[in-house]
Design a protein around this nucleic acid. Structure first.
Lengths: 340, 340
DNA sequence: CTGAAAGCGCTTACAG
DNA sequence: CTGAAAGCGCTTACAG
């Protein structure tokens, strides 16, 4: 039966040593070092250690108005993209003595607003947010608050705030250009039906690559999946395209999730990739070296994204300014898009 | 240029309405409801809303000595096992109005101690820890502190504290029994060289399954990989076993990481799984339906682990008691272990 | 029904 | 070199 010990406070040390709490505070925070007698300082330090003193950050925060805490809101922390991002943010934050609180919005507007409120109530020094769909008003409201923030992964192009995001247009265009270079002209797109700017930029990149190659756009080769319940939609989209009289020779999936579901269906149907249909996808999948057909995909610079977002946020906390960063994607070429 | 607005406090509302801060506090916290005039309460609520009041949790925490915050320390939040665990913990915590702080120990003793200190300084109400190797003294010290905690995934069998963990012995024995039922008698084990109890329980399960089937233990079929730099060790271990005059017909990998690295090597060498060698592994891998050879593996009940750990911790915060939970693993049978 | 007052554990401008 | 004192924004036992 462990008994709850009362924690020792500055006052306890002050009493023990016979000085004021002020002096103890100064010594333990290494302030006014030159103006405090060595002996007293030494005595304070040693009894603090002996009494196992640990400063109460809550009390300090109340006084200093700083919590050394960053709030991170993503769609879902268990999504590998976001958990990797979280790790880089954690490390970068820790290097500057910040701790990270996290929460998942599940792409839900209501939940997102709620999480922002909870984090503001906790007086986080700043927020890193991968904003959910339709949360522009929430972000706009944040701009009017005192709390610095930076968006990651997604942003709203008409909102003048800090963000770090992939250049999705460029990345998608690169992916489709690659398919064209490999001799494909009938190229399908499977994407989400969404108002997300970053997703629609991927479609724009696709369209741009086709246009510059003089390939006419075929609406039947573009399918937009409902985000609410994607699995059946993906299956149907792929099936429909395969059933077309002139079916695509290649397919570009605009997200990793669409790609995985699509590939599972293609495999079930016994369609040979890349021989019958070439594939390019988005984002890395764990252990894809072990895939039947290792994928060609756009790799996002997650490390840079996390590090820069954190660095910019911490700069923001010290002095306000906005910074907008577009990071390039990298096309990783693999079996799924190369016919021999 | 957004200007930092001063946040509105209870005092501001009190002044505005012309009552004491005490009364405002009571109304906003729905206390003494019966003993406060309806009109005043209404007035307070409406001006609080009008002034956009949000309670400062830091100030409240200082007074109440509760932060409604749980600290989560895992080896690496970007590891899918831990990020999924984190998600279930987050949801369970949120349901009880707790927020989660997280950090990664990188299996590093020093870092682990540091994180525990940081979280205690922040006055977390409780801790959920997947303890790193050799951190038993740290956990023992925690027991003597005032802060409740529960271990997850790993634990120290001689420490009487709360934990939620897989029954690793049973799970591993099940895996190896399956290989034996499939007709394998020469079964190798690739595991880590470690003092981790949970990992060594997996070895014990392996040994037990062999013993009960009357299969003699062959030390050459058991390889322990150095955790510090596993990749080359795994490669060599697999290569060595394959080169043996009587080589194993089946291989049990005691962790997912060992399995992935091992499989990559087997694939490079053109070894056919399961025909030349059957494989069973630990933990789910993302999108393993797309693997050349979908794996047979032990699935851990991550959801239950996260939920129970959180529930037990929150119970602990309210009234002390220890609870120790062993969860069963489930064998998911797939191509990698079934020869036709 | 309502309020004055103390206090949580710190930090820091000010005075000596 | 050192300390008394105010105050951060809340909560709550107590008094009326």
């Amino acid at each position: 039966m462990s008994l709850r010990k009362k924690k020792v406070s500055l006052k306890d040390i002050a009493q023990q040593v016979g000085v004021s709490t002020a002096l103890v505070s100064y010594v333990l925070n290494n302030k006014r070092e030159d103006r405090i007698s060595k002996e007293v300082a030494k005595k304070i330090r040693s009894t603090a250690k002996k009494m196992n003193y640990r400063t109460n950050q809550i009390a300090r925060s109340l006084k200093t108005n700083k919590t050394a805490t960053l709030g991170l809101i993503v769609a879902d922390i268990s999504n590998p993209f976001f958990s990797q991002l979280a790790r880089f943010i954690e490390d970068q934050a820790a290097a500057a003595n910040y701790t990270v609180i996290f929460a998942s919005s599940d792409e839900n507007e209501q939940k997102s607003q709620n999480l922002i409120n909870v984090f503001l109530d906790r007086q986080v020094d700043g927020l890193i947010i991968a904003p959910a769909e339709n949360t522009k008003p929430q972000i706009r409201a944040l701009q009017r608050s005192a709390t610095p923030f930076v968006l990651v992964d997604r942003y709203f192009p008409d909102l003048k705030c800090s963000y770090v995001a992939l250049d999705n247009f460029q990345a998608a265009r690169e992916a489709v250009r690659h398919l064209i270079r490999e001799g494909n002209r009938r190229i399908g797109l499977i994407t989400f039906k969404t108002s997300f700017f970053h997703i629609n930029e991927r479609r724009n990149g696709y369209l741009s690559a086709l246009r510059e190659a003089g390939i006419p756009i075929n609406k039947k080769w573009i399918r937009e999946i409902n985000m609410a319940d994607p699995a059946p939609g993906i299956k149907k989209a792929v099936a429909d395209m395969l059933a077309l009289p002139t079916r695509p020779e290649a397919l570009f999936f605009s997200t990793n999730m669409l790609y995985i579901q699509g590939m599972i269906y293609l495999r079930q149907q016994g369609i040979k990739v890349p021989d019958e249909i070439a594939i390019v996808s988005f984002d890395e999948t764990e252990a894809s070296e072990l895939f039947d057909v290792p994928p060609t995909y756009i790799r996002q610079p997650i490390r840079e994204m996390g590090q820069q977002a954190t660095r910019i946020l911490i700069e923001n906390i010290e002095r306000r300014h906005t910074r907008q960063v577009h990071l390039p994607g990298e096309l990783i070429i693999n079996t799924s898009s190369i016919r021999r």
